[in-house]
Structures are given as C-alpha cells and as structure tokens.
Write a protein that binds this DNA or RNA. Structure first.
Lengths: 140, 140, 140, 140
DNA sequence: GTGGTCTAGACCACC
DNA sequence: GTGGTCTAGACCACG
C-alpha cells in the first residue's frame, strides 16, 4: 500500500488519491472488507491535509467503492474490485479510441500506428511484467 | 475554418481554440502568411468572450505559431505547419505510451491490447478517411 | 429476543439497539421487571463493542425505561410499556405529518396520496398480520 | 429563490442546500439553463462559509443536476427538473412505506391509519395550497 | 467576476 | 481511536 501524490501535477490531489485507491482495489492490494488506512494516517504519510484525504474517501463512498463503519474506519465494498476494473478498462478503451482518432487525423497511416503500438508494447511489457492479475476469486 | 467550442467540456475554452487553430495549420487549412479571423469576429462566431479568444492568440503567439502585424491583423508564421505537426505527433506519441502503460498496468495482456488497437483502427480508418495529409512542401 | 444491527446503516448502532429494546418492550416481548440480557452477552450476540451496548443502556436508563439493580442486572421499569408505546405512536404521528407535508409540497395531490396510502396499507397489512397488539393491561 | 439553513438542525448544512436547490428545480423556481446564485453570493445570504456552498454544488454536479461553466457560474442541467421530481417522489414513496410499516407494527389498525392520514391531509392541504405544479413543459 | 482546490484548525458523534 | 462537518483564509485558472 504505497501511495504517493504529486501536488504540482495539475490533477487534484484528492483525485490522485481516489485513483490510486481504485487502482489498489483493482489489483487486489486492497480487498473487499479490508480496512483502509485511516484518514489521519494517510494524510500524514502523504503529507497532505486530512481534509484532502477525507474528500477522496467521500468521493469513493459516493461511487459505492468504499463504505464507512462509524467509529471504526472505512472498508472496501463487496463489488468494488469488479467495479474498479470495469471502470478502468472502460476508461482505457476510451483513451485508446481517443488517441487513435487523433493519430489518424494527424495523418499517420493505420499501419504505422499499429507498428508503433507493437514496438512500444514490446519494450514496455518487459519492464512492467504482469504483477497485475491474480485470480479474481472473491467471496464474503 | 469551422471552429467550435464546448464550454462544459472540462477543457478550458481558450485551449480548445488553440488546439483547433494548430490543427487547422497542421492540415494546411490555415497556411503560413494567411490572415487569421479577428478576435472580435471569432469571438462572435464562437459566442465566447473576446478575452478568451485573445488569450488563445496570446498563447499561440508566445509559442511562435502566429504573429501580429500591426494594423493588419494576425498571421500564421512561416515554420508553423511543421511545428504544429511535430507538436502533435510528439503529443500523440506521449499519449500512446501513456495509454499503453496504463493498460498494461491494468492487467490487460499485450496481445489483447494489440487486438483492440487493430480492431479500432479498422473501424475508425474507414470513417475518417485520409483528408489529412496533403504534401508537406513548405520552406524554412 | 432477536436483535440485529447494521453497522453501515447511517443510524448509530447504539440507537438501533435502543430502538429495538423499546420495540420489544412495546410488544411485551420484554415485560416490566424482566431481566435484560447483560451488556457482555448482548455485545457478543450483536458482535459490537460492549461500550456501544452500554451506551444504549445508559440512554434507556436516562429515559426511565430500564433500571439497574446492583448485582442482579438490568430490568425493565414498571411504566415502560406505556411509555414506549406512547413514544412510538407520537413518533409515528410526527413522521406521518412530516411525510404528508413533504408529499404535498412536492406537488402530489391529496387524493393521490390517499390512494397510495390505501394501496400500500392493503399490501402491507397482509404480510405483517397483527402480531402486535396483545391487550395492554398493566398497572401504574 | 429564498434559501435558508438551520445550522443546529442535525442534518448537514450542505445537505440542506442541496435539498433546497433540488426543491427549487422541481418547482421550476430554478429552470434548466438558468444561472444559479454564485457560491459567494449564496454563502453571504446564508451566512455560511463559501466552502460549504461549494460542497453542495459539487454534490449536485456529481448527480448531474447542475453543470458549471468555467468562469461564468453554474447552471441547471437539461433533465434536472424531471430528475429532481422523480428523486423526490421516490424518496417520499419510501418514507410513506416506512411509516406505514412502523405504524402497522405498532399495532394501529389499517383503518385507523387511513383515517389519521385523511384528517391530516385535510388540515394540511388548506394551509399549503397547490403552489407546486405548474405545467412541466420544458424545452431548450 | 466565476468555481476549484488546498491548508489549518476546530468541534462533533460514534466505537 | 474513527470519519463528518464547518470555518477561515489562501491561491489558482478561467472568462
């Protein structure tokens, strides 16, 4: 559970936190039912204001990703993993589409794009490795 | 020269204008030496605040894409087309890389991504056609 | 005496407990003089913090619904049933009024509300049956 | 557009604001496309902190009720009226059901409830009058 | 002028 | 200890 934020990043800090938590859930670093780090704890770790973390939590709650147990803390909801994965894949699909449209508009040939993608994939897939997909069994 | 903006788009309006002008230059709809529409004209056409258009022009000027000729108006700079194309292709390359990293992180296999890309390319390249690449002859 | 709580319910757990005990008293599942389950027992049964149960008991005691007999435990007070029923009916009256005001404000016609109520009553009164009203003889 | 809040009300101030704005939209006091009062303006009028108003606006935006135009302000979304009415009627239906269940459980007879409702409706509908439902034509 | 974000510090109810 | 809410005051990008 190593979260980091970049305050001079353009994207809001609370959004970065949201994104990383969703990420962690999608990767099952955070699992349904598990307690999240507390607001104060996380705010210290990231050296941001507790309000900022709280805001991220509120958004996640409004999306049904997490659930707060009064006085105890915040846990990951049941269907959260699936939701997070789905969200992300949809987002990625959109972005792929967007980039491709842009690329085609800019006059690159389809073949060329395909080659670029293939080359990049090769160089990237080495460095990233597939940490990502443990079997998605989930109960409780 | 059909510009449009979406005020509820998240992207700043002036950025949308900048982007579209660069686009038009890259496509040679606007050619070096050509006069741009005036701030007032464009602001009416887009129904936005003249300040907003002016701001877009400022940015383009600061990037050396356009230049103001006192008493005449604003024209496209000489090297603008190359610059715009280059910017765009660089931007596209970055975005492709970004999307691919994200996609791999999210646990999609490289093969799968390649397939998605190929499929999308096929469906898109039909609808877009190659309006885009007139021969890029231009000096400087 | 089947109590249950929902920690992710919005309503404070101790309030849920208070409510259910009052409920049980009103229904005469718990009768005056009868011993309540101990804090420890109840907290285990509900898998909540003993403090939470204790707090519920404190509130009930402060309302004069229950009383602690040193060394014996906690019992239901004499006038508790009437008090609980009265509280509840008052509460219900308030809530009915509240809902009706809200409904009228929202532009539903009085006739329409009446119909909704009638329909709901019909469908509900079947499923609920009248477990509820043993004769309310009791002294004090 | 007379908004008021009660800080010692139990319900969060920002929620009260959200509720009243939805209300105003449902009643067409605020119409689609119309500009809402600005954050600062509203915060002064209600004598609350601008952040509190902003929070209300954010929630409304996340629900798709309003839309912010950068630098201009916040407007009511197209389908907002229908959404607000629907939300409210659903909420009321739930509350009616809840009250009725409670009432039946408490041993009041269905007939009796019906009478109570009818009586209350009569006394209330006089004082409230039907300000509420102008014809819901909406375009643009 | 507009809203969006962040910090700091405070108080609350709850477990 | 937990999160939820509010205030105060600041800075930013945008129109």
């Amino acid at each position: 559970m190593l979260f980091t934020v970049d305050p001079s990043n353009g994207v809001a800090i609370y959004s970065q936190i949201v994104r990383q938590i969703k990420f962690a859930i999608a990767e099952q670093t955070l699992r349904p039912g598990q307690l999240l780090p507390s607001v104060r704890q996380l705010s210290q770790q990231l050296t941001v204001n507790p309000n900022t973390v709280a805001r991220a939590f509120q958004q996640l709650q409004s999306e049904g990703i997490i659930e707060t147990l009064r006085g105890q803390g915040v846990i990951v909801c049941k269907g959260a993993m699936q939701a997070c994965r789905k969200q992300r894949q949809q987002l990625i699909a959109e972005r792929i589409e967007g980039v491709l449209v842009e690329a085609l508009h800019s006059g690159i040939e389809a073949d060329e794009i395909e080659q670029i993608v293939r080359k990049k994939l090769k160089s990237l897939s080495g460095s990233i490795a597939t940490i990502a997909t443990p079997n998605p069994s989930e109960n409780s």
